[in-house]
């Protein structure tokens, strides 16, 4: 019985965490401010815009989360580390770009991978390229957040422009590293 309440409490924490509370507070304060400063009409208009958007993006979010789960299942972390550990030079930077773009999840997922790679002897420019690709052209983040909220045109333009940037970051790292020696942790 006690075990059951524990699970239920953990369940509740996934649904109502700090971020959720922050947005709840922002919605309440924002909504009150709009209602008082701009009137009931504006309040109703803002709320219905938001509800329309929620309905429109719901299928995209569900699809994107499933895509993320399939990518994780098809490209396990061990395979990714194997590709990157052996690579160097321009080919290494290209592989790091693809691997970074495919890595789903937040910094808690990406940084342990980088640390593991670095300790295993991967070149530091390859690590920088990987991190840049993960943060800039991560497919999962673009599908879940950017595509539904900022739209197709914006996402496409930004990603196209960002495609060469991870490799550029790797090359710049190689250029700067003689002046800033990095010891392996």
């Amino acid at each position: 019985m006690a075990d059951n309440t524990g699970t239920r409490r953990a369940q509740l924490r996934t649904w109502v965490d700090g971020t959720t509370m922050l947005f709840l507070a922002l919605s309440l304060v924002g909504g009150t401010a709009v209602w008082m400063l701009r009137g009931t009409g504006e309040f109703v208009a803002s709320l219905s815009t938001a509800i329309g958007m929620i309905v429109a993006i719901a299928p995209i979010v569900v699809g994107a989360v499933l895509i993320g789960a399939y990518v994780q299942a098809l490209v396990p972390r061990s395979a990714m580390e194997r590709w990157l550990g052996r690579s160097s030079g321009m080919r290494g930077l290209l592989i790091a770009t693809v691997a970074g773009a495919l890595t789903p999840g937040g910094p808690f997922a990406a940084f342990p991978i980088v640390l593991g790679l670095y300790r295993a002897g991967a070149a530091f420019p390859v690590c920088v390229t990987y991190l840049t690709a993960w943060s800039l052209i991560g497919v999962n983040r673009a599908l879940v957040w950017e595509l539904p909220l900022l739209g197709y045109d914006f996402t496409l333009v930004r990603i196209l422009i960002s495609l060469p940037l991870p490799i550029l970051a790797g090359l710049l790292t190689r250029l700067i590293s003689p002046w800033l020696a990095v010891e392996r942790p």
């Binding site: 996934t14 649904w15 109502v16 947005f23 922002l26 924002g30 701009r38 504006e42 709320l47 938001a50």
Partner: peptide, 20 residues
């Protein structure tokens, strides 16, 4: 699961902020 509560609330908050 964590997105089910976050995304709608984030959008509602965003919509109100946009009006302000």
């Amino acid at each position: 699961q964590p997105l089910i509560t976050r995304i709608p609330l984030a959008l509602i908050a965003g919509s109100f902020l946009a009006a302000l």
